[in-house]
Computed example of a mutant assay.
Amino acid sequence: MAEGETSRFVAWGEELRAVHRRLRDALRVVRASTEAGDPVGPLSNDLLLFCRGFCAALTGHHEGEDRELFPAIAAAHPELRGTLRKLEQDHSMIGTLVAALQAAVDRRMPRDAIEAHLDGLAAIMESHFQYEERELLAVLEALALDAEPSDVLGPLGTEPRR
């Protein structure tokens, strides 16, 4: 290696697990913010902020996977193209649920309506994360992809390496 060059190794499987943990934690924060006050009263500013942040992070994560990660996996493992298509379909469905949640928040729907959206999104998100980890972690552990984790896995990916 030439002077000044750095070697970068990203354990993509661990990065994926870490982002999924952060997204689960963010969802818990959103849920906790719904518990304060009257369940059908006005939404708190904290709930509005946490919900919008969570929705942006989840959307950014899936967009990064679709744009960067899945093409790299498909190139290295063409036998996984069916799995990747299913994951992309999940991303589309989750995107629809996120849009419905965002619309409910923007309309300042009652907390019980927001909680119903969160329940549905949480169930699908968890099922998706478990499937993705079960199907891709072994492949990700050996994936050579020279990219920043935040570009590949969204805004909750690790900070860029220097």
Rank of each mutant, 00 (worst) to 15 (best):
A104Q: 08
I114E: 09
H62D: 02
P78C: 12
L87S: 08
Q130M: 14
A142H: 12
L69G: 04
A144T: 10
D66I: 00
A74H: 06
D106A: 12
A99E: 15
Q89G: 08
P71M: 11
E68G: 01
T59K: 00
P78F: 14
E126H: 06
E126S: 09
E148Y: 01
L97S: 10
F70P: 03
D119R: 13
E141A: 09
H128K: 04
M109L: 14
A122M: 05
D119L: 06
I114R: 07
G82T: 11
R111C: 08
H61W: 01
I114F: 04
I73M: 12
L97P: 04
H77F: 15
H91V: 03
Q89P: 00
A74K: 04
R81G: 05
L84A: 04
K86C: 12
H128L: 10
F70H: 13
E88R: 11
A99D: 15
T59I: 00
R81E: 15
L97A: 14
R67M: 11
A144V: 14
V105M: 11
A144M: 03
A113D: 13
E141R: 11
H77S: 14
L137V: 00
H128R: 05
D119Q: 09
R111M: 07
I94F: 03
L143K: 08
A100T: 05
Q130D: 13
A144L: 05
E148S: 10
H77P: 00
E148A: 12
L87N: 06
L69I: 10
E135K: 06
T83F: 02
F129V: 10
A104T: 07
G82W: 02
M125V: 06
R81Q: 15
Y131Q: 13
H77K: 09
S92K: 04
L84E: 00
M125K: 07
D146A: 11
D146Y: 05
T83G: 04
